[in-house]
Amino acid sequence: MSRRLSLLAQRTAIVLALGLFLAPVLWLIMTAYEPSRAIQSTPPLLWFKPSFANFASIASNFDLSRLTLSSVVLSAGSTLLSLCFGIPCGYALARTRSRSAVIIAYALLAIRGVPTVVTLIPFYLFMQRLGLLGTWWAVILMNATLSTAFVTWMMFSAFQAVPPEIEAAATLDGCTSFGAFRRVALPLVQTSVIAAALLCMMFAWNDFLNPAFLTRAETRPLSVALLTAFGGNTTSGWGNLGAMAHLSTLPIIAVALLLNRYLVSGLTRGIH
């Protein structure tokens, strides 16, 4: 009985928290169906006659499939690249006993902490010299530098929790050390890998300054178009912003929900 009660209390708390996290986004989504005279009125309204004019408006002003494609490419590309760099790096740092590991990890973090103001202009000129300015690559490479540090740190702490003895046993059984990493260590930190991937994907998906600066009209992602949809100084585009937000939130939630079955416990099932 008390176990049921505690489950009920837990779920209520989770639902309440979800409400807090979702309500502001739901409000933004809702503005898509409002005529703009209803969005900014006093006192503020919650009911209105829904209209789909805002969707028609963004469809005629933006190449929506192109924008979505750019967002998908940018976030998938940055995520893959950061995982490819970050997971091995985190593993190596966790397994080495040399002092330089800590220094490298610390340096990666410090690099992540450098404000974009310093790097943006040199990076822009660098990309121009490589002929990558205005392409997706420029943004992917930039995001991957920041996210690699993030993945490395996440995997660093995850691999540290895996006792090296397990791998030693596998090596004795005839595994190469890479095999031990791939077949033994990696599956054990699956939750962390999925969590890191999800967060990388979201960082890249919501990134604004880098793509605004490094892309052109034809390679622009949704995060930048959102602000364009909102409009300039004198016109308020809450409705357009809300309509665009459907595209910028729903796909990423769908992907996240698809990944969620891998978000299982590693060594243990949680006890409660």
Partner: peptide, 12 residues
């Protein structure tokens, strides 16, 4: 619930 909780991070 874990996934839905992440929605705020997806907003620019």
């Amino acid at each position: 619930a874990t996934i839905l909780m992440l929605v705020p991070i997806t907003v620019t």
